[in-house]
Nucleic acid binder design. Structure first.
Length: 689
DNA sequence: GCATCCCATGTACCT
DNA sequence: ACAGGTACATGGGATGCG
């Protein structure tokens, strides 16, 4: 018998076996095997059907074993039902068999049939989350025992990740690889030459550097199929794993000891720090990293839900996409989302921003809100699932405070916090979602209602203590009281916290904050748009040009400078007089730069995302024209890609001549207007009073 | 023929 | 396949005016 201590790196199912990879503390990857038997549960229509069913199942040869078990079949119901557990032989490719089972007249319902094998193995056999720290005992290459070891370190497991970028040859009729660029931590290598040599160098690189994770944009939809196809075209049999296990990349990116990650990195980044966040997501969702980067919120949370339920004796119903039909009157009184308090236009001084911490997750836990609203049991799924992850996030937040700024440890910590934040908050989003197999619109509405009540309560308390509500959006309130200091706002937060039972704290303390005029409807104040200066000297803003990725760098930099120029004074009066005067000066200087052509065209690039196939735009909008131009020079553009362009002649009657994808010159009039609009954002709600 | 208004389209942002 | 709420620029047709 041998044993190892290290990290549970990956797992996939091959035939009737689970293949597990561990990374030891000596940086060695070890491949071990474990038995795995696929199974589903069946509820027969009645006693007679059961006998018929068992008889017929034994004849098919798909089923190795039939066991009668008592299981809970419905969330929130105590009742257990007698089910048949069918153990299915995977070598016979039982897909059609499962379909016929669902349709069989003897069968009332089939359970656990739409879980992946790897999920069934993890949830019912191994019961350890991928990426966990483990101690493993094994004999030859067969697993005897795996045990989880607590891991509360901030540093993630030492998985080595490379980022891969594949470039295509332009202008060729058959697409070919022109080069590959690989970045591992701070080392960058570029491979070029013949396709065969590039692919060869890539494979060698992976094994020589002992890379564990490969991240490449559009892995499944483009990059991976592309390099595989090009390898084959060059007579190379693609091998990018550490062993010759059957290719699994299409399903979950597992390649025998190496994982090609998908491109979902919500709340964290696909960089050297991002592994910490990825590990959190993988552990939460109880999925190997390949799936954790491919499955979006609904499926990831569903995965954790299924694990928790199976642990408690439930079987998993099939997803069904039919939401119960609602009458018009029901739809009319549907509970809407969060509450917004409309702000007063213009400049405010001394404003405190109080934020409920993780408002929706906290409400779910505090009120015990879950899919099973009228449950017969104590157990509530969503609170049970969220609670430990709220606690973990709070723990990490407290650690973060002790870590020096810019330190690697702090970055790891932040990534973990971000990943958990996203998981926790999307729990709310999926409660009423029709793709959620447990979804329940009433639950969604109950959470909304509780959120609004908390806001209303917060407002009442603030009012009663003499604070003025300046603005509020879903889980934050902006309040002011003349002469109030930081301490007063903190006390208000405590008062609200003890009244509502929800944690709330002072997030920012603005010296000046400006709420803006609605540009389309200028009688009103715009929501979700403001800028201001805190007592710490930080500029903060929402919604305006500086916050937008489709605004050129030059413009954003100008607006940021403008805000500091205007607000950098002791009192409101000075802002209205000196601030505005200096701001106008800056605006005119900047306009001159645009008009005399001294701004680099590169700095005026506009970046927009393409949300549909470039060919089916109805209108010749600038970014669609830019996409068409990129395609015409051989570049690949699909939905989700960013296109960069700049206006060269925005009034040209031919939409194709308005924009250009290469920086040559720019339309001075267009960008002057942009500067003016950007300045207007700052000035227009300031000028009166 | 031109300016102006309104509306649909399309994208991005906020929590 | 996470939600709802919101702002805004742009293009293009309809409308009005001379």
């Amino acid at each position: 018998m041998q044993s190892l201590e290290g990290w549970f790196f990956d797992v996939y199912i091959q035939q009737n076996e689970a293949i597990l990879w561990f990374k030891t503390d000596d940086n060695e990857l070890i491949r071990l095997r474990d038995r795995y038997k696929n199974f589903v549960y069946v509820l027969p229509r009645d006693e007679n059907s059961k006998k018929d069913l068992i008889f017929r199942l034994e004849e098919t040869g798909f089923v190795d074993n039939i066991i009668e078990e008592e299981k809970k079949t419905e969330l929130g119901k105590k009742e257990k039902k007698k089910l048949l557990r069918l153990e299915i032989n995977l070598e016979k490719q039982p897909k059609c068999f499962l379909k016929s089972l669902e349709k069989s007249p003897f069968v009332e319902k089939v359970f656990c049939s739409d879980l992946r094998h790897v999920q069934k193995y993890l949830f019912t056999q191994l019961k350890i989350e991928p990426t966990s720290r483990v101690k493993t005992e094994y004999n030859a290459d067969s697993i005897l025992h795996v045990e989880k070891i607590d891991d509360d370190k901030i540093v993630p497991p030492p998985f080595k990740m490379s980022r891969l970028f594949v470039e295509q040859k332009l202008g060729c009729s058959s697409k070919q690889i022109s080069s590959m660029r690989i970045i591992t931590n701070n080392d960058e290598v570029v491979f070029d030459g013949t396709e065969a040599s590039i692919i060869d160098m890539f494979s060698s690189y992976l094994s020589e550097k002992s890379i564990d994770l490969v991240f490449t944009p559009k892995c499944d939809s483009f990059t991976f199929p592309f390099i595989t196809e090009r390898a084959l075209a060059n007579g190379i049999i693609p091998s990018f794993g550490r062993c010759s296990d059957k290719e699994q990349v299409r399903k979950q990116g597992s390649f025998g000891g190496r994982i090609f990650l998908g491109d979902i990195f919500y709340g964290y980044n696909a960089d050297e720090w991002g592994i910490a966040g990825l590990v959190e997501r993988s552990r939460f969702s109880f999925l190997p990293m390949g799936l954790a980067t491919r499955w979006k919120s609904n499926k990831s949370i569903d995965s954790r839900n299924c694990f928790e339920l199976m642990e408690r004796g439930y079987v998993i119903p099939r997803e069904n996409y039919f939401e119960s039909v609602r009458s018009l009157s029901e739809l009319m009184q549907l509970d809407r989302g969060g509450l917004i308090f409309t702000p007063e236009l213009g400049l405010h001084e001394n404003v405190g921003v109080l934020d409920f911490d993780s408002q929706f997750p906290s409400i779910i836990v505090k009120e015990g809100l879950s899919y099973e609203i009228e449950s017969e049991e104590q157990f509530r799924l969503i609170p049970e699932v969220i609670r430990p992850f709220i606690a973990r996030r709070l723990f990490l937040k407290s650690i973060k405070k002790t870590l020096p700024k810019e330190s690697p440890l702090r970055k790891y910590c932040e990534q973990r916090i971000e990943a958990l934040k996203l998981i926790n908050v999307t729990q709310y989003g999926i409660t009423g979602c029709c793709w959620n197999r447990f979804g329940n619109a009433k639950t969604f509405e109950a959470i909304n209602k509780a959120s609004r009540n908390a806001m209303i309560r917060a407002k009442e308390i603030a009012d009663s203590l003499g604070f003025r509500i300046i603005y509020g959006d879903v889980d934050s309130i902006f309040v002011s009281k003349s002469g109030a200091i930081k301490r007063d706002y903190e006390n208000l937060a405590s008062a609200i916290a003890s009244e509502t039972g929800l944690s709330i704290s002072l997030d920012k303390h603005f010296k000046f904050i400006v709420f803006l005029r609605h540009k389309n409807d200028c009688e009103f104040t715009a929501l979700k748009r403001y800028f201001g200066l805190t007592y710490d000297g930080e500029i903060d803003s929402r919604g305006i040009e500086v916050r937008r990725d489709d605004i050129p760098d030059f413009i954003k930099e100008f607006q940021l400078n403008l805000i500091s120029t205007v607000l950098d004074f002791e009192n409101a009066n000075e802002v209205y007089t000196e601030g505005i005067r200096k701001g106008l000066e800056l605006t005119n200087q900047t306009l001159d730069m645009i008009r005399n052509g001294s701004v680099l065209a590169e700095r005026l690039f506009i970046k927009k995302r393409i949300w549909r196939d470039p060919s089916d735009y109805n209108v010749n909008v600038a970014h669609s024209v830019a996409a068409q131009k990129l395609i015409s020079v051989g570049r690949k553009v699909d939905t989700g890609d960013n296109v960069g362009f700049l206006y060269i002649d925005h009034r040209n009657p031919n939409p194709l001549l308005r924009v250009e994808i290469l920086p040559k010159w720019y339309d001075k009039e267009y960008y002057s207007k942009m500067i003016i609009n950007t300045a207007k954002t700052i000035f227009e709600s300031l000028k009166e009073k």
